[in-house]
Write a protein that binds this DNA or RNA. Sequence first.
DNA 1: CGCACGCTTCGGCCGCCACCGAACCGTGCG
DNA 2: CGCACGGTTCGGTGGCGGCCGAAGCGTGCG
Lengths: 224, 224
Amino acid sequence: MSDASRMASIAALLGDPARANILSALMDGRALTAKELAFAARVSPQTTSGHLAKLTEAGLLDAARQGRHRYFRLASPLVGQMLEAVMAVAGPDERHGAPWRGGEALRTARTCYDHLAGRLGVGLADTLVARGHVVLGTDGGEVTADGQAFLRDFGADPPAGRRVFCRPCLDWSERRLHLAGRIGAALANRCFALGWLERHRDSRAVRITAEGQAGLVEVFGVRL
Amino acid sequence: MSDASRMASIAALLGDPARANILSALMDGRALTAKELAFAARVSPQTTSGHLAKLTEAGLLDAARQGRHRYFRLASPLVGQMLEAVMAVAGPDERHGAPWRGGEALRTARTCYDHLAGRLGVGLADTLVARGHVVLGTDGGEVTADGQAFLRDFGADPPAGRRVFCRPCLDWSERRLHLAGRIGAALANRCFALGWLERHRDSRAVRITAEGQAGLVEVFGVRL
DNA sequence: CGCACGCTTCGGCCGCCACCGAACCGTGCG
DNA sequence: CGCACGGTTCGGTGGCGGCCGAAGCGTGCG
């Protein structure tokens, strides 16, 4: 089995439109269920199941059972880089000559469910941890009394509910933790409300406004 | 036409074994004829012609007519990077856990026909130009009297023959010129004879020995 | 000029694979 | 329990695309 034929078998997996849709939907690092991916791929659940089996078999996806669901995510950053590289070649034809910038934008700042990820998300988490406002480990997290006060001052009121309050979330592009749970959502909501961040039209990438640049540096010491 | 479907159509091109062989054969930056590529792909010339048409149509290859031959090469460094990224995902299964290093090795130093390319080839050319030993432009090259003497001292005797003496060759990975022609071959041969370089078993990548490291710095001021 | 050669086009064959309907497990929930 | 639901397996079908033989076109060389 030569280099070329191994490359071909991997590329053939990306070469099917349904599978390409699946991988594309996972490029922001989220973990989605088989059914959600079936919807994204625009094919039936049975067909999707076959595709997912092939992709995990080839090591492109990781699968995790949870209750009666099965969550799929990209198996490694290497896979994401490969997808970006193909996008970079496939992209330029569209608008004008600009290479595909989506990957860079996603790595800088994006939403992950209802909280923030990418360099921005990790940067915020780092600051809060460094200041002793938050304690964050791979298996859980906690907000200190100082942190509660700080976040209240900042205007980040966590929504009421039974969801876990403070939770770590593994960041795909940074390979480090960022802040999830109700407190992660509160932080993100406040940033949007302040006009610091703007949602992109049809991507999970997030644009940082001029006010955002200034505010993030002043309040969190985060400069991107 | 979404990002994902454009990605799929590109990836589908890489996903066929014959086309993967073709692209793989071109990864060192050489330009090969349709027939040579047919041999590399292990399919008939007719079939190869179809594949080459698809690949050039998609912008992955550049074609140049020359006499009754047609030379194909990778259209851009972006394409090479994409191939490397796919190799990086496809490769690790093989030996042990090591990621695929072929791309980096090829960019550092490789043979291009019978002369040297990559950072090494470009570095040598730069030095010779900077010292006034060689004049090199996109449409031709010349060795000065000083250069003749220098190369004689170095032991690089150009083989006799009717081939052009000094010629530039566009380097794929560096996007700059390196030295080809009889003088380029002489330089490469001398480096191999001195034990500065060793050919890799089944790749055009070239290994620089310890003596080579020292000698290249001393004689050419080239450090990689 | 004529043959050889490189490359391309056309036509038809064949195999592979994506796709879905139907039926089958297992989990969760009332 | 029994139903609902997520996910998977199986079987059959259809279509796309790779493949080569044969024939066509242009270039180069004796």
